Amino acid sequence: TGYYDVLGVKPDASDNELKKAYRKMALKFHPDKNPDGAEQFKQISQAYEVLSDEKKRQIYDQ
């Protein structure tokens, strides 16, 4: 599964769309709200870390 799929956004998503999707998913799977969501929360955080950084995103998109 790709990072875009993890966040539920298209590859041409804007920074604002990425942030909005990340916040929505992070709230849904945060371990405090969803004890079984810890692994998914890590994936969401990693996806956002890469896609929100312009240089990392360019490398990922290659």
Rank of each mutant, 00 (worst) to 15 (best):
K33F: 15
A13L: 05
G37R: 07
E54G: 14
Y3F: 11
K24H: 11
A21Q: 05
Q62W: 06
Q43H: 09
Y4L: 03
V50L: 07
Y3W: 10
Q46I: 15
D61C: 03
Y22D: 04
S45H: 11
P11Y: 10
K10R: 13
V9F: 01
A38N: 07
H30C: 13
H30L: 07
V9G: 08
T1A: 10
Q40Y: 13
G8R: 04
P11A: 10
H30F: 05
D5L: 11
N16L: 14
A26M: 13
M25E: 06
Q40M: 15
E54C: 13
K19R: 13
I44H: 05
V50E: 03
D12P: 02
E54I: 14
E39N: 07
N16D: 15
K19Y: 14
G2P: 10
K20E: 15
V9M: 01
K33P: 01
E49G: 07
D53N: 09
Q40G: 06
E54D: 11
Y22L: 03
D53Q: 06
K20T: 12
E49I: 10
S14C: 07
A38C: 11
K55W: 05
N34V: 06
G2E: 10
L51Y: 01
D61K: 04
Q40R: 13
V9K: 01
L27W: 10
L18H: 02
A21G: 04
P35R: 06
Y60A: 03
D61P: 05
N16E: 15
D32C: 14
A38H: 12
S52N: 04
L18S: 02
L27D: 14
L7K: 02
V9Q: 01
L18Q: 01
D5A: 14
Y3L: 12
E39D: 13
A21N: 01
G2W: 15
E39T: 12
A26W: 15
G37Y: 15
Q58I: 09
D12E: 06
D53G: 04
S45F: 11
L27M: 07
D36A: 11
S45D: 04
A47I: 06
G8T: 02
Y22M: 06
E39S: 07
L7P: 00
D36E: 12
N34S: 07
N34M: 07
G8D: 05
R23I: 15
E39G: 04
A47F: 03
I44T: 02
A38M: 10
R57S: 04
Y3H: 03
T1N: 10
Q40A: 11
K33V: 14
E54N: 12
V9N: 00
F29W: 08
G2R: 12
S52M: 12
D32N: 13
E49W: 12
G37S: 10
K42Y: 11
A21I: 05
P35N: 05
D36G: 11
D53A: 06
P11V: 07
D61I: 06
E54R: 15
F29Q: 04
D53P: 00
R23P: 04
G8E: 05
Q58K: 13
A13P: 00
L27I: 11
S52P: 00
A38E: 10
F41L: 07
H30M: 05
P11D: 04
K56H: 06
E54H: 15
D15N: 13
A21Y: 04
I59N: 09
S14H: 05
R57G: 01
P35L: 05
M25F: 06
Q46R: 11
K10E: 07
A21W: 03
I44V: 10
Y48C: 05
G37Q: 08
M25T: 02
K10S: 12
Q43K: 14
M25P: 04
V9Y: 00
S52W: 04
E17H: 03
F41P: 00
R23E: 15
Y22R: 03
D12M: 02
Y4G: 01
Y48M: 03
V6T: 08
K33Q: 09
R57F: 02
R57Y: 04
Y4T: 00
R23H: 14
K28D: 05
S14K: 06
A13K: 00
K55C: 12
L7E: 04
S52C: 12
S52V: 09
D61E: 05
V6W: 07
K20H: 10
A47T: 00
Q46P: 02
Y3T: 02
N34K: 05
G8Q: 06
G2Q: 10
K10D: 07
K33D: 07
A38K: 08
D61A: 05
P11W: 11
E39Y: 09
V9L: 08
E17W: 05
G8I: 01
N34F: 07
M25Y: 04
Q46W: 10
V6Y: 04
M25S: 06
V9W: 01
Y48T: 02
F29D: 01
N16G: 12
P35I: 05
E54L: 13
Q43W: 12
G8W: 03
F29V: 03
D61F: 05
K19I: 09
D32Y: 08
P31A: 08
L7G: 01
D12H: 06
V9S: 02
E17M: 06
S45G: 04
D53T: 07
Y3Q: 00
Y60V: 06
L18Y: 03
V50G: 02
F41K: 01
K56I: 05
G37M: 10
G8C: 12
K56P: 03
V6Q: 06
A21V: 04
S45L: 15
Q62I: 10
N34Y: 09
K56C: 12
Y60G: 02
Q58E: 11
V6S: 02
Y48H: 01
E17N: 03
G2I: 11
T1Q: 12
K33A: 08
A47K: 02
D61W: 03
E49A: 13
V50T: 11
I59D: 08
Q43G: 03
R57Q: 07
K56Y: 06
P11F: 13
R23Y: 14
Y22N: 02
E39H: 08
K28T: 08
L51H: 01
V9D: 01
P35A: 06
N34G: 06
N16A: 15
K28A: 08
K20M: 13
R57N: 04
A38V: 08
S52D: 00
N16W: 15
N16I: 14
Y48G: 03
A47V: 11
D12V: 04
L51W: 00
T1G: 12
D32K: 11
D53H: 06
Y60D: 00
L51C: 03
A47N: 00
L18W: 00
K56T: 09
E54F: 13
A13N: 00
Q43R: 14
I44W: 01
P31G: 07
K33S: 11
Y60N: 05
L18R: 01
K42I: 09
P31D: 05
G37K: 13
L7A: 00
L51N: 00
K28V: 08
I44L: 07
G2V: 06
L27G: 08
K55E: 09
Y22A: 01
I44N: 01
K10W: 06
H30D: 11
Q58G: 08
K19P: 01
D36M: 10
K24E: 15
R23T: 13
A13D: 03
S52A: 09
F41D: 02
V9I: 09
I44M: 03
L27Q: 12
K20G: 07
D61M: 04
E39C: 08
Y48N: 00
S14P: 06
K20L: 13
D53L: 04
D36T: 08
R57C: 04
D36S: 11
G37V: 08
K20S: 13
D61T: 02
G37P: 01
K28R: 07
P35E: 05
M25V: 05
P35Q: 07
Y4K: 01
D61G: 07
K33T: 13
A13Y: 01
V6P: 03
L18M: 04
L7S: 01
E39K: 09
K42C: 09
Q62H: 09
Y22E: 02
K28Y: 11
Y3S: 01
A26N: 06
D12R: 00
S45N: 12
P31E: 01
M25L: 15
A13T: 07
P35C: 09
A47D: 03
S45A: 12
E17Q: 08
G2C: 15
P31W: 07
F41M: 08
K19E: 14
K20D: 15
A47G: 01
L18V: 14
K55F: 09
F41Y: 12
G37L: 11
A21L: 00
H30E: 06
K56S: 10
S14E: 05
Y22H: 03
A21T: 02
G37W: 13
P11E: 05
E17G: 02
N34E: 04
Y4R: 05
I44K: 01
Q46S: 06
Y4W: 04
T1S: 08
D36N: 13
Y3C: 12
K55Q: 11
K19C: 13
Y22S: 00
Q62N: 10
G37E: 06
K24A: 12
D61L: 03
D12N: 12
Y22Q: 03
